[in-house]
Design a protein around this nucleic acid. Structure first.
Lengths: 337, 337
DNA sequence: CTGAAAGCGCTTACAG
DNA sequence: CTGAAAGCGCTTACAG
C-alpha cells in the first residue's frame, strides 16, 4: 500500500512545522500569509486529507453517530433509516450502522462494537433490552435518541414516536364506524409497538362495546409481506367469520390482501383491510391501502436535530416527544354491506 | 464525559505493562498464566473494549469497508444494500456508508470522506464519474467491488452484475412473443443501466423487425413509483396507441400500472406491463408483476466474499462477473387480444 | 515470558 | 506568528 500522505509530508513540503500545518487545516487565524499559501499549495498538490482516526483520538468529539436497527428491518424502518442517514449527512456527521440481532447475544455484540468506537451520539430504531447498554451510554454521557418507541426507564434519552396505542385505536375505530363488528387483528409480539397496537385494537373494541374475540387475533413472527400472507391463510383456516382486518403493519396488510384475493375474496368489497405505517407503496397499490401515517420525515429530521442539540450543548435531559399521526382512508376500507 | 477506560487502566489494575495487556487482548500465547488471569479479570470488571481508532492507526488493516450508494436509492438498491451490510457483518467487517449526490461536487465530497478514513475496501452501488476517485483507490491499493454495473476503464476493480442489455431484451422479447407490437418503453438516462436497458429494448424490437417508434419511449427523471405514474400520464397524453409497456424498473412499472388503472385501463387485459429488478413487493401486487429477476442475494454474497478475498490476499485483479438473470412471468403480461 | 521505547497521525498548550 | 514537546490509545520490534 503506497504510504498515505500525512501532515508531516505537508510540513516538509511547505517547510514549516506540523503545528503550523495543523493550524491552517483547522482554520486558525494566526498564520503568516506566505506560509499559509505554501501549505495550501502543498495540500492541493498532494490531495492530502487529514486522517480522521488520528484526529478523533486526540479530540473529544468524533462527529460520528451510530444508528442501531433491527437486523431484519421492514420497509418502514428502511425509509426511516434513509431519512435519518440523509439528515445526518446534511449536518456533517459520519454514520456507522449496527444491525442488532434479536437475541441477548446479538445485543451484547452490539455493545462491544459501540464501546470500541467513540461515538458522539446514538440513534436507536429498535429497543435494546440488556441494561448494560443503557448504563454505558449514560455513564459516558453519550447523547441518545430513541425513534418509534419510548422507554420510561431510559435515563437521559429522548424518544420520538407517535402514540401507538391511540393510533391503532383510531384505525380500528375507523373500521367500526364503517359498520364492521367482526374485526380481525394481525399482530406480533416482537417489539413494544406490537403490544401497543394490539392494546389499541382492544381499546377501540371495548369503547364500542364489541366483545374481544381471541379467535380473531392472529399472531405472526415478523412484520413482512410473506408473513402477512401466511397469517391470513391461517386465519381463514380457523373458519371464524370476519368482515374487516387490522394489520399492525402495512406489509402485513399487503400480504393479507394478496392471500384474500387469491382465495377469491375481494378487498374491500368482501373484507376491509387497514394497515399501519403508510409506507411508500401503500398509496399506489390496488386497492390503495387505508392506514395510519407516521410522520416519517419529521421523525428523521427531529431525531437528527435533537441529537445535534444534545451533542452541541451536552444536555442529557430525558424527553418524550409525541408526534401526531394521521388516519388515511383510502380504498381498502369500506362500509360493511 | 467520564473518561473511558484504556489499556493503561487495565495494565495498572493487573499490575503489568501495557505490552502484556496488548498481548492478551490480541490472543498472543506467550503470557504467564497468572498475569493473563489478572488481566482477564480486570477486563471483565471494567468492561474494557480496545479503542478501534487507536488500533487502526497503528495497524495496517482497519476491518472497515465503505459502501457508496446513490443518495436517492430505490427499493432494489435498498434490498441490495441490506444484503451487503448483512454479509459484511457476518464477515466481521465494520461498514461506513456514503451517500453520493448526483453532481460532481457530491462525488468530490465523497472522495474527501473516503480519504479521511482508512478503508480496507470499498463497495460501490453506483457509478462515480470523477477520475480522481478511481485513481485514489488504485494508487492506494484499496480493493474495490462494483455492484450492478461495470466499468471497463476501472483498473483493478471487480464488477458484479447481470447483462443488463440482454435481460432487457429478454423482457421485451417476452412481450413480443405474447403478440405485442406496439410496446412502450419507460426509461431514464440516469446511470448506465438506464442506457443499457433501453438498448436491450431496441435490440429486441430490431430482432423481431418491429420498427422503433420514438413516440413510444418516455423518459422520466428517476426510478421511483411516483415517476412511473407521472410518466405513464404523459405517455397517454401523447395519444399513441400501445398494448404493452416495458418499464426499466419495477417501481416505474408499479407507478405506471396505478395510473393505467386510474384511467380505466386494466392490466394486463388492456395493457401488459413488465418491469425489471424483481423487488420484494412485485410478487404480491395485484396483479403480480412480470419482471426480470436479479440475483440479489447472490450479488450481495459475492460482493462481500470477493472483497474479503481481495483484502486478504491483496490481489488487485480486474474481473467482470456476469451473473444470470431470470425472466419471471407473472400476471401483468398476457397475450395480446 | 515481559517491560521500556518508539511510532501511528493528529492537536494543543507552552515557550519563545 | 511558530516550533518543540507531550499526549491521545494502541501495537510491535527490541532487549532482557
Amino acid at each position: 500500500m503506497r504510504t498515505m500522505i500525512s501532515i508531516k509530508d505537508i510540513a516538509r513540503l511547505a517547510d514549516v512545522s506540523v503545528s503550523t500545518v495543523s493550524r491552517v487545516i483547522n482554520g486558525k487565524t494566526c498564520v503568516a500569509e506566505d506560509k499559509r499559501l505554501r501549505i495550501e499549495q502543498a495540500i492541493k498538490e498532494t490531495g492530502f486529507v487529514p486522517n480522521r482516526a488520528a484526529r478523533d483520538m486526540v479530540m473529544k468529539n468524533t462527529s460520528k453517530v451510530g444508528i442501531f436497527l433491527p437486523d431484519t428491518f421492514n420497509q418502514f424502518q428502511r425509509q426511516l433509516f434513509s431519512e435519518i442517514a440523509h439528515n445526518l449527512e446534511v449536518f456533517g456527521y459520519y454514520s456507522s450502522f449496527f444491525f442488532v440481532a434479536t437475541d441477548k447475544q446479538g445485543e451484547q455484540a452490539c455493545l462491544q462494537k459501540l464501546k470500541s468506537e467513540r461515538l458522539d451520539g446514538v440513534i436507536l430504531l429498535r429497543e435494546i433490552e440488556i441494561p448494560e447498554f443503557r448504563t454505558y451510554l449514560l455513564q459516558n454521557h453519550i447523547p441518545t435518541i430513541l425513534v418509534t418507541f419510548e422507554n420510561a426507564h431510559w435515563e437521559g434519552a429522548t424518544s420520538i414516536h407517535i402514540s401507538e396505542e391511540e393510533a391503532a385505536a383510531a384505525a380500528v375505530s375507523h373500521l367500526i364506524q364503517l359498520g364492521h363488528q367482526e374485526i380481525a387483528l394481525m399482530g406480533a409480539k416482537k417489539f413494544s409497538f406490537g403490544t401497543q397496537r394490539e392494546l389499541g385494537y382492544k381499546r377501540a373494541l371495548d369503547h364500542a362495546s364489541i366483545p374481544y374475540n381471541p379467535e380473531l387475533t392472529m399472531y405472526v413472527d415478523s412484520y413482512n409481506i410473506p408473513q402477512g400472507k401466511m397469517g391470513m391463510q391461517k386465519l381463514l383456516e380457523r373458519n371464524v367469520p370476519f368482515t374487516a382486518l387490522f394489520a399492525i403493519t402495512d406489509e402485513l396488510a399487503l400480504g393479507a390482501i394478496r392471500l384474500l384475493q387469491d382465495c377469491g375474496y375481494s378487498v374491500p368489497q368482501d373484507i376491509s383491510v387497514i394497515g399501519f405505517d403508510d409506507i411508500e407503496i401503500s398509496s399506489f397499490t390496488i386497492p390503495r391501502l387505508s392506514t395510519i401515517q407516521q410522520p416519517l420525515k419529521e421523525m428523521g429530521r427531529l431525531a437528527v436535530s435533537l441529537l445535534h442539540d444534545k451533542i452541541k450543548h451536552a444536555v442529557q435531559e430525558q424527553r418524550n416527544i409525541h408526534l401526531p399521526f394521521v388516519l388515511i382512508e383510502r380504498e381498502s376500507t369500506v362500509c360493511r354491506n
